[in-house]
């Protein structure tokens, strides 16, 4: 080592010594270990090698077929996606603001309509409807003998008084039509100004006398005493039965009678199911109306269910 002559800023000059075994440190591409070769081959299979690196590796692959095959095997290591689908995909899709607004108004409205249909059909109006629409008054409806109030009138047929039990046991009374209302053929005595005909189906058969002035006058004294305790307020028929029939059911009834030529009994459950099925079909909803029956197969309740509203309602026995 020599010191330069510049004394103001002396510098060291490197000597000429050389490493004696330096030449042994040189490596060729074939000297790569398998692990090193694998890493390079992996990069080569990814097309990530360029220039000299690529040339060296290809030289090794050409020189050694075993390593050539080994490198080629990396090309086969590729994963292919399966057929898994994201289960939450549909729920993540957001509806447009317009569609949201429509849904928010339309869904509750239609649900309310569906619920109203069920309530109308299975409500009081629907229950009374059967009476009005049935062709005959049914003897099995109404009170039993034991339930007949003590003040019930004595019944006379063809001018002869009959016992209370006889009257109740009578099965069906023939009816006639007067101005749209159904009235038994045998009418109440003329001195009974306000007949109680429509309620007959709910109660034991009331006083029934042949419409004959002579017969009426014959039984008049008996009737007048028997009827004295009857409260007319209690047995008066509802004057608004016709009004309580819903417009929809009236329309259906009218259409049915127009087509068949005779008045048909309305099946409320079928109508309600039809409406709900129609709404489901048009809008793709999943509203359900189910009829629950007892062991004898008689309907005892209906249950309505949807995503927003569900309720169950017992069926009135007189419900159509």
């Amino acid at each position: 080592m020599a010191i330069t002559e510049d004394t103001d800023s002396p510098r060291l000059t490197p000597p000429e010594e050389r490493m004696p075994s330096g030449s042994r440190l040189f490596r060729r591409a074939v000297d790569l270990t398998d692990e090193q070769f694998d890493l390079l081959a992996s990069a080569w299979a990814e097309d990530a090698l360029t220039g000299e690196a690529l040339a060296e590796l290809e030289a090794v692959m050409t020189a050694d077929t075993r390593r050539g095959d080994r490198a080629l095997s990396f090309r086969k290591i590729r994963l292919t996606p399966g057929k898994e689908t994201w289960p939450g995909l549909t729920s993540a899709i957001k509806p447009s603001p317009v569609l949201t607004a429509i849904r928010r108004t339309l869904i509750p409205s239609l649900l309310a309509v569906a619920a109203m249909i069920v309530i109308i059909i299975y409500g009081p109006a629907g229950a009374k409807l059967k009476m009005v629409n049935s062709g005959k008054l049914k003897a099995d409806s109404g009170m039993t003998v034991e339930e007949i109030p003590a003040s019930s009138p004595i019944i006379a047929v063809n001018g002869e008084p009959v016992t209370r039990r006889d009257a109740v046991a009578g099965s069906e009374l023939p009816v006639t039509r007067t101005g749209g209302a159904e009235i038994p053929q045998s009418t109440v005595a003329s001195n009974m100004a306000n007949p109680v005909i429509p309620e007959v189906s709910k109660r034991a058969q009331p006083l029934a006398i042949v419409h004959s002035p002579a017969a009426a006058s014959a039984v008049a004294p008996v009737l007048s005493t028997a009827m004295a305790s009857v409260s007319f307020n209690e047995i008066l028929p509802s004057p608004t039965i016709q009004e309580e029939k819903s417009w929809m059911l009236r329309s259906v009834s009218f259409l049915a009678s127009a087509v068949t030529g005779k008045e048909k009994q309305i099946d409320g459950y079928t109508i309600a199911t039809g409406c709900i099925t129609g709404i489901n079909t048009v809008l793709g909803w999943k509203m359900e109306l189910e009829q629950v029956s007892n062991k004898r197969g008689e309907p005892v309740a209906v249950s309505f269910s949807s995503s927003l509203l569900s309720f169950s309602r017992p069926v009135n026995k007189t419900t159509p």
Binding site: P81, G82, E84, T85, W86, P87, G88, L89, A92, I93, K94, S96, P97
Partner: peptide
């Protein structure tokens, strides 16, 4: 919003597949 929905339809399954294959748990991936 339309583009967001397109992103759901187009990439939803891809992202799910990537995560599911990474952690092998469908519930967590979801």
């Amino acid at each position: 919003v339309k583009e967001y929905n397109n992103a759901v339809r187009e990439f939803g399954d891809h992202v799910y597949r990537f995560i599911f294959r990474s952690i092998k748990d469908s519930h967590k991936a979801d």
